[in-house]
């Protein structure tokens, strides 16, 4: 890993710079509040709901997951609403590495990707070589790897170590799509969120992702705003657009639309597609489907009309 250090950090991470730019929490929260209160109606709402389905990483990360359950999940991912063929498939199915194989079998030949969490998800408290081995193994099947950032090193201030590990994982997964989970609920503040975002992007992340979903608070809109602003500044500094994934605690279509609005008004339309924007969720999808059905028929369906995965 030591060999990776050189060349990991582009000059932009030299401090002080945009990486260490401070964030005012009150202002960030006020901005998020504005995004959450945008009134998205009619055509804009239908467009946003469709976008959210296309950008969903349909997720199941339970100890009780089995190949059978994963197959159900994949079926849902391919055809979210059996009644309405106009509803597009989701972006990916997100599972533990052990279930990447069955997921991959179900999704073969479809546009839906397989994403596997790795590097000692969710805590990341496993030896470095285990993380690399897990990531490499997962990458043999999965298209995308959702790794957890090393919060232990980050909170100790060992930022180079954090960056090195991300770069090492990136190398180990051989060109697979790398999402780095910051677990913002454990970082201790918006300044740290900004710093961690920059670190992950500089170290080669294709996506930065808010949370594992196993820690409260998980994704919040103000945190998303801070990360999106970091992505914008990073793209400006380096020319490389990095994607954004919100995950954890997003259960309603209204919440999800708030994230889409934040992306739209911070990064612009070029980020509003599954290549640069994802929402990791399990129960969200049914609420979105219910809203789509309501937009189509004018009436809400019963929750039982949608399959529980």
């Amino acid at each position: 890993m030591a060999a990776m250090t050189a060349g990991v950090a582009p000059p932009e991470v030299a401090l002080p710079g945009p990486a260490l730019r401070s964030v005012d929490g009150v202002g960030a929260e006020a901005r998020a509040q504005l995004f959450a209160s945008r009134s998205i109606k009619r055509g804009a709402k239908r467009w946003a709901l469709d976008l959210i389905v296309r950008c969903t990483d349909l997720t199941s990360l339970e100890g009780a997951d089995t190949p059978g359950r994963t197959a159900t999940l994949c079926a849902k991912a391919l055809r979210p609403d059996p009644v309405d063929p106009a509803v597009p498939p989701v972006a990916a199915v997100c599972v533990y590495p052990a279930l990447a194989e069955p997921a991959s079998r179900c999704l073969r030949g479809s546009p839906v990707k397989v994403a596997a969490v790795a590097t000692g998800f969710p805590s990341g408290q496993v030896p470095a070589e285990v993380k690399l081995a897990e990531a490499a193994a997962a990458a043999r099947v999965a298209d995308e790897i959702d790794m957890v950032m090393d919060r232990r090193a980050f909170l100790c201030g060992r930022y180079v170590e954090v960056a090195d590990e991300i770069a090492a994982v990136k190398a180990a997964i051989g060109g697979r799509h790398l999402k780095v989970i910051l677990e913002t609920g454990e970082l201790g503040g918006y300044d740290q969120v900004r710093r961690a975002s920059w670190l992950a992007m500089a170290a080669g992340a294709d996506f930065i992702k808010t949370s594992t979903g196993k820690i409260q608070p998980a994704a919040t809109l103000p945190v998303a705003v801070v990360m999106l602003e970091a992505i914008r500044d990073f793209a400006e500094a380096t020319g490389r657009p990095v994607g954004f994934k919100a995950a954890g605690g997003i259960r309603t279509a209204r919440q999800a639309i708030g994230y889409a609005v934040a992306v739209n008004e911070t990064l612009g339309g070029a980020w509003l597609n599954p290549v640069r924007f994802r929402i990791g969720a399990s129960s969200l999808l049914n609420d979105v489907l219910m809203q789509i059905a309501k937009e189509r028929s004018g009436a809400y369906q019963a929750p039982d009309d949608f399959s529980q995965t």
């Binding site: 998205i40 055509g43 804009a44 467009w47 946003a48 296309r54 546009p111 339309g269 509003l272 597609n273």
Partner: peptide
Amino acid sequence: TAAPESPGFVYA
């Protein structure tokens, strides 16, 4: 697999 450029999020 870049998705076709979205027309943008035009608020009704």
